[in-house]
Structure formats: structure tokens, C-alpha cells
Amino acid sequence: MFVISKREFFSLFKSIKSIIIIAILLATAYYSSKFSNALTNLVDFTADEMNYVHTIGLLSLLLLFGQLFVLGLSHDCINRETHERTMRFLVTRTSRLSILFGKFLGIVLFWTVCVTISFLIISIFARQFDFFSFFQVMSLLIYQISLTILLSTIIPKPGITMFLGILLGIAFPIFGMWITFTSNEWVSWLKYITPFYYLEHDNYLFLIINLLAAFLLFISAAIFTRREF
């Protein structure tokens, strides 16, 4: 599992897409916290607001574009290997669960590094490391990574996941935000299976997002262990 996660982790740093996304993340972290810093000198924020003012830029970026970023980088993490038949080298050497969780771990590690660096930049301006927001962001990303792995497991062709990735990456946050705040009874129950509802609350309810992610991974594992290559 760790051999696969190590390979996945390093290969994510090698594409131009990942460099662009890292640059966007770091630039957002730097400029939003710099702007927030300037804003705190002009506006009187409450103590609660002061806790979020520096991280709000990064959190908003990942709420709106996180799914697009994760799908953009990892939409083919499983199906590329199936499509090009390199999966045969993996499944004849190690267990299928090790492959799936190895991939998951590698992608999570990549995003943990990116988000940690972003939060360290923010902490320079905020003069504190906002652990609560950090774990909120990581929970959101873990959900998005699990959804990406599920898509890549279900859909065998990388071309289709790339297309769906763009559609889903744009539509998912819009739809997620809408059902979080809508009063329409027919669809509002769906808010419980998206991460946005749990992030809206300023408490540890966001930990439920990790349970949703575990459920998505469980479905992926159930499909992947039955798949033929």
C-alpha cells in the first residue's frame, strides 16, 4: 500500500496541472491573508470573525473549486491503470484493497502538503495556526478525493472521467450550496450527503464529512475488488 501511495504522491507533483493548482493555492493563501491583515486594521471584527478572516479566502477557494482541482488532477487515478492495463502488474502483486487505499493515501498526502503549506503562509500573517479550519479543509478534501476515486473506479475510460470531472467540479459546489440553503423539501434532504451542510456549522459536525468519505471509499472498494482487468 505504501509503495503505491508513495508513487501516487510523487507523480502528482510532476504534472503541469498540479504546479498550476499549487500556485493558485499558495497565491490565494498569501494574498487573501495579506488582504485580511490589512482589513483587520480598518474594520473592527468580532473575536469569532477574527478567527476566520485569514482563512476565509482559502476555504472559499476550496469550497468552490476544490472538487474541480481534485478531479482535474486525479480523475484517472484508477481507470488510467485499468485502461492502459498497467493495473495487471499491480493486481498480480498486491491486494486490490492495498491498491485502492494506496492511491487514496497518496492523493490525501499530496493535498495535506499543499494545504499545510498554505496554512503556514496564512499563519505568518495571522500569527496563529488555525487548526479548526485546517481540519475542516482537510475533511472537505478527503470527501472530494473519495468521490474522485469512486468516479475513477466506476467509469473505466479516463476520457469520460475528465469530461465528467469538469462538469461535476463546476456543478457540485453550486448544487451543494443550493441544497444546503434551499427550503424545497423534495431535495433538501440531499444536503446531508454533501459536505457543505456540515461545514456551514461552526462546530465539530464537519467530522461527519469523513464518515461520508469512508462510505464513498467503501463503495469504491466493493466495486474495485469485483472488477476484472
Partner: peptide, 22 residues
């Protein structure tokens, strides 16, 4: 396997290192 494709970004040596570790 009957149909062998490899990771195009890796060398033959890298493949053996990766697959033996796996």
C-alpha cells in the same frame, strides 16, 4: 501478462525497482 504495457514515464530499471518493492 499476455499484453504488456508499462508506465511510459519510467525506465526499465525504475519499473523493476517499483514492481519489486510492490
Amino acid at each position: 501478462p499476455d499484453y504488456s504495457t508499462f508506465y511510459e514515464s519510467l525506465t526499465a530499471f525504475d519499473h523493476l525497482k517499483f514492481l519489486s518493492a510492490l
